[in-house]
Design a protein around this nucleic acid. Structure first.
Lengths: 343, 343
DNA sequence: CCCTCCCGTGAGAGCGCTCTCCCGCGCGGT
DNA sequence: ACCGCGCGGGAGAGCGCTCTCACGGGAGGG
């Protein structure tokens, strides 16, 4: 039990006013220096910067927001299932990319969980003018409330949103169809012919596109693309799908799994049954996530540059916030096949 | 190319003033209602609330902060390695708990990455009065910059911080020593005698405490606690540790792994070598994370109520922010053994 | 040599709230 | 009847910044 007061007394931090006085100029001039206006003489800039450094001045965000009606913060809108979101390595590195790029700007990230509560707290938050823009990730269809955000602030989607969510959405995405095709063609190139796929949820464009790529490649090869099951982008889900696939078609020799995390689930099932990879079944994953190298054998996988995607998403949003008139709506980042041992 | 202007024009949202006029009262009264002051007559409260609902009024956060010098936002300070942080299921559910509790309050989470950049952006951010309080997670020692935050705002640690970081830190933690002991005693109770452990990093109290619990239990049983290796809380790290342990002592019959994620790494090595679990080696993990049920067999594990911890961390911080004079510094949440198939 | 223009700077009006006063009214005590 | 008190509500002064506008002075043109 200490004798200090529990209340943290905030010794008043220096204001613009104080800096102005110290530098012998007006508030307006200090403000100009802080905001990098070119219309200030060099020596004055230096004097002000010296005063700022000496006083340890940090602009008051609230005051700045109030006066300029720009908050300098952007919302990271994540879906209800926070733990699913954060548990996924893809999003982990997406967020890393986001953050890195954001760190170079003066914007701050507000973590907003878009839950389906009756009063739409997240929507009210964004509509309430609390952020200048928003980044939406892992967007399943059914989140119609996003429509309520249209036109309120610029929104950039990490991954292409479902049609109908937004008239002309800004988004960053990889070419998932090409990725699915790439993976499947690699398996075909290896001579595999009885190829199955474990897809992600049907309500996510990313997983449906990868599936489309799989189908296209199989079609082109004149093979049936009937061995399809769904794993919900989780390892247990994929394990269950793997068991079902093996039941239907025990002689599979190739498998395309729409995420590395799911691939770990599938691999576990295979290992348990003594099915050898890649000897018996060659496997290609998707994401090039850390999970791809967790196992005893490296997973051949389609590289989604998730960190780059995060960074790009921020770039797009910042350009939008900067008033750039010709930001492309679709921002596609490249996909690549990383060949390891599993296929 | 649409004809709309790229600039998102913000139609001015209603202000307190507007609500006051609509309800036929003064700004002050509306403010009282919004902030739940008891000194307003019931009928007036209703009239104001009606006006608020009709106008769709949302308080302007910036103005509020400026006037009250409270920001109503709290920083979630995460360590540099964002992807490690987010990739860990424990933190995922910790964050879920955080968020759920926070959603009930009017506070907002600011994601601040505490990187070791030269100008300490994170420190400046917090010191700049941008948040009312901070939550620090995954705190390794070596983050001495936290010292610069002492006394600036209330800080609550998720997990006990290293000694020396803060004179008298507020923290929420599980009793990791008890947890390590619990796990080890379970193995002993199963009749296992040649028990090893894969510990976490040596610079984290949580992992050192679990190790201490392991040692204590072994000592009490009169057994040597020499089979110790370290896995850095990652699956590949644990896999490497497992291989080393087996090399040194191939006849192990029990294993305590300090995290479920690491346990998955160890299990993979065991599976690859045909060592059966639990028949040959019984394994107890730690965290009761989703990873515990990913495998073919369920992992017996020590349950860390991570979501509860997140929620509790917020509780502690909110009490601190509320000026509660007697918030305990150490907040210990209970630990529990979840028995599945692996031991 | 005067007028115009621009450039660097200062003055000052808000931005939308909170919060301290202060006022008026109705009640109870003397 | 008077005074005091408490309670509900209003008035108004900021909070720390941005931004428009005005202003003084030097350069350039006629």
């Amino acid at each position: 039990m200490s004798t200090v007061t529990p209340r943290h007394t905030v010794r008043h931090p220096p204001t613009l006013e104080a800096v102005a006085e110290a530098a012998g100029v007006s508030r307006a001039t200090v403000s100009r220096v802080v905001n990098g206006s070119p219309r200030v003489r060099g020596e004055v800039v230096e004097a002000v910067q010296k005063a700022i450094a000496e006083l340890g001045y940090v602009p008051n965000r609230a005051a700045r927001s109030l006066a300029s009606s720009r908050t300098h913060s952007i919302a990271l809108l994540v879906p209800e299932e926070v733990s699913r979101f954060f548990g996924d390595p893809y999003f982990a590195s997406f967020t890393t990319g986001l953050d890195r790029r954001l760190a170079a700007s003066e914007y701050v990230l507000n973590l907003v969980v878009a839950r389906d509560d009756p009063d739409r707290k997240a929507v009210r938050y964004v509509r309430g003018g609390n952020v200048d823009g928003a980044i939406v990730v892992s967007h399943h269809s059914g989140h119609e409330f996003l429509a309520q955000l249209e036109g309120v602030v610029p929104i950039v989607f990490g991954g292409r949103p479902e049609a109908g969510i937004s008239a002309e959405p800004y988004f960053v995405d990889v070419d998932n169809v090409a990725g699915g095709r790439l993976a499947t063609e690699h398996l075909l190139g290896l001579g595999r012919r009885r190829i199955a796929t474990i897809a992600g949820p049907v309500d996510m464009t990313a997983s449906m596109d990868r599936l489309a790529g799989f189908r296209a490649a199989m079609d082109d090869a004149g093979l049936p693309s009937t061995a399809i099951d769904y794993g919900n982008f989780t390892a247990p889900g994929a394990a269950a799908a793997m068991r079902r696939l093996l039941e239907e078609q025990p002689d599979l020799d190739g498998l395309f799994v729409a995420s590395d995390l799911m691939a770990t689930g599938a691999l576990r099932v295979l290992a348990a049954r003594g099915i050898r990879v890649p000897d018996d079944i060659a496997i290609v994953g998707y994401d090039d996530s850390p999970a791809a190298t967790w196992g005893e054998i490296g997973l051949t996988t389609v590289s989604q540059p998730s960190e780059l995607m995060g960074a790009t998403t921020v770039d797009v949003l910042l350009r939008l916030l900067g008033g750039d008139p010709d930001v492309p709506h679709a921002n596609i980042v490249p996909t690549e096949l990383i060949i390891r041992e599993s296929a």
